[in-house]
């Protein structure tokens, strides 16, 4: 195995790039607008699950992650795994804007033959570090990637964004156990704790709390933040322990399902999977654009 260490790419985007909170908030709202547009194009999609983690996606891609869109397989890039793959619709506009693929690809979203699908496919889309769709797998994949970084003496971090309903999958806890056993300080789990799964509130379907305590008991360092506050997320990511550390980090990102639209926050479950009418889209766009204009 060839060992490469340290950022060497001339086109790399470094970690913790300077960007203002207002701009990150605007990015999160732009992700929401694009999500509405793409889901309309496809005719079906996961709105409220995407909205809950829009701020996390914005902060990771526009501030935190070390990336090189010109070299998607750069060995020293930070990895980002979308455990809750059903929100790929929110990832596509970002990857296009960063230059991983032509923005024209977005226009084909949801159509037969499009590389952009409801869940991400690593073989079809540059910038997707691993495929997802089957909940509960990606934290394990992240453990493997963390082990690989250790073997090649790389300092890349591996971020895995999971849903909170996803944590009902038993494999997640196998992964949690193995991450601390192998002392993977380069692994960061971000739990998008919006309180719901497809079937209803997680407190009703199958309780997963207390999340931080559970991960702490599995040997992880935990931090709990308001996941719809870009400043809080950025602070949490900026102060991550060095990836050479010996404990994986769990960021419990407390979010609102459907965050960013009042009607959706009031009825998050109705918008887990759906398709807005023309009137609903117009109202949603108006609400988001008014916020962005302030």
């Amino acid at each position: 195995m060839t060992v490469t260490s340290g950022p060497s790419s001339a086109t790399a985007l470094e970690r913790n790039r300077p960007i203002g909170a207002d701009e990150l908030r605007a990015k999160a709202d732009w992700i929401r607008l694009e999500t509405i547009r793409l889901i309309d194009q496809a005719g079906l999609g996961h709105y409220s699950s995407t909205f809950s983690c829009a701020e996390a996606l914005a902060v990771l891609y526009y501030h935190t992650l070390r990336l090189d869109p010109a070299d998607p397989s750069w060995p020293d890039r930070d990895r980002f795994l979308l455990g809750k793959g059903h929100v790929a619709v929110g990832q596509w506009p970002i990857l296009a804007e960063l230059g991983y693929f032509p923005t024209a690809w977005l226009d084909g979203y949801g159509r037969l033959g499009s590389p952009l699908t409801d869940h991400p496919d690593m073989r079809k889309v540059p910038g997707v570090d691993f495929s997802s769709g089957s909940l509960g797998h990606n934290l394990s994949v992240g453990v493997g990637m963390g082990l690989a970084q250790r073997l090649r003496h790389g300092d890349a971090r591996v971020f895995v964004l999971t849903g909170d309903g996803e944590l009902q999958e038993g494999q997640v806890w196998e992964a949690a156990m193995s991450a601390s056993h192998y002392r993977l300080g380069n692994l960061v789990a971000i739990l998008d704790a919006n309180g719901f799964s497809g079937g209803g509130a997680t407190s009703v379907t199958l309780n997963i709390e207390p999340l931080a305590d559970r991960f702490a008991a599995f040997g992880w360092t935990t931090v709990e933040v308001d996941g719809n506050d870009v400043g809080a997320l950025a602070r949490a990511f900026d102060t991550l322990p060095d990836p050479s550390g010996d404990r994986p980090v769990c960021v419990v990102s407390r979010t609102r399902k459907g965050a960013g639209l009042a009607a959706m926050e009031a009825a998050p479950q109705a918008w887990h999977l759906g398709h807005m009418t023309e009137d609903e889209r117009a109202a949603a766009r108006a609400e988001i654009e008014a916020r962005m204009a302030r």
Binding site: S140, G144, A148, M177
Partner: peptide, 18 residues
């Protein structure tokens, strides 16, 4: 350990890393 499903997906992560 006795955690086969995790083992397979961990292997996938290692394979994706070369």
């Amino acid at each position: 350990g006795i955690a086969e499903t995790n083992t397979m997906s961990v292997a996938a992560g290692l394979a994706a890393s070369g």
